[in-house]
């Protein structure tokens, strides 16, 4: 579609704009959600920064893991290709992001920050709830960015759009493709609205992240069949993202009852202390 446009001679990636818009939207929604727990706006901003750093590292690392051949070649042939060649290999290996890597990285960032910062230590579960609500919102904007950028494209299809002259992702050109990016963006918006309603109604408090991990992996596993790019590699007929979806779904299936039991025990204990 329109992967880049020029301002004052500088090429601006539309994906970057959508990512920035998504981040701003998450901050604006998040500052409304934190009011319930009386979390300071600056503490929330620092939590978002920790999540952002974790997201960038996680997303890049998982992408690099699927591009390990470039890294392997770069380091093993260093004496032939030198620093310039190594830099090209490293740049290629790290030149993209995988959503699941970003999701896991951001969650780890929040967990580390809430462990270290005394001001938000008590709000760890609340912040994870807010994170669960905001992730699909950000992801929805990101997928629109993918649509305009021409990456993460769909399978050849009679329904959809044909892109021409996309120099950033030439594989997409001249083939009518299903707009799977828009489908996933729409699904993410629905997930965001669902989790927002549950948050507002205090349903599944302190467990929304597990609910998200029960819903989104199903969506992702399904729409991977509509993806036309093998960009994250495949294993035994399933894409990398489908395998990660299975793992995260099982993780949530195991953790949700454990967390529910733990919360029930805590509230029973609190009720006993009040009675005393």
């Amino acid at each position: 579609m329109f992967p880049v446009f020029e301002i004052f001679g500088k090429q601006i990636g539309v994906y970057g704009i959508m990512a920035a818009v998504g981040f701003v939207a998450c901050f604006l929604v998040g500052r409304l959600l934190i009011r319930r727990y009386d979390i300071d706006i600056y503490d929330f901003a620092l939590t978002m920064i920790a999540a952002g750093i974790g997201m960038a590292i996680g997303a890049s690392l998982l992408y690099a893991a699927t591009n390990y051949r470039y890294l392997f070649y770069g380091f093993s042939h260093f004496y032939e290709i030198g620093w310039s060649g190594l830099w090209m290999c490293v740049k290629t290996a790290l030149d993209g992001f995988v959503f699941y890597g970003g999701f896991i990285g951001a969650a780890i960032g929040i967990l580390i920050y809430t462990k270290c910062a005394k001001d938000v230590k008590a709000h760890r579960d609340h912040l994870l709830d807010i994170y669960a609500v905001l992730v699909p919102l950000f992801h929805g904007f990101g997928r629109v960015g993918c649509f305009f950028g021409g990456c993460c494209y769909g399978i050849e299809s009679p329904f959809g759009f044909t892109v021409h002259n996309n120099h950033l992702n030439p594989a997409i050109n001249d083939v009518n493709r299903f707009p799977v990016q828009l489908l996933e963006s729409g699904c993410n918006l629905l997930i965001f609205l669902l989790l927002l309603v549950l948050f507002k109604k205090h349903i599944m408090e302190k467990r929304l992240i597990y609910l998200y991990l029960l819903i989104y992996p199903i969506v992702r596993f399904s729409d991977e069949f509509l993806r036309g790019d093998g960009i994250r590699g495949s294993l035994f007929g399933l894409s990398t993202s489908q395998w990660v979806s299975i793992i995260l779904f099982i993780f949530a299936l195991v953790m949700l009852p454990i967390k529910t039991k733990k919360l029930k025990a805590q509230s029973a204990q609190a009720a006993e202390s009040d009675a005393d």
Binding site: G13, Y68, F97, L168, D229, G230, I231
Partner: peptide, 18 residues
Amino acid sequence: IIGTIACGIVCAAGTAIA
């Protein structure tokens, strides 16, 4: 972020080719 991150930088010479 706008100037640096472009998902489209992920060119077709990515994992599929690797």
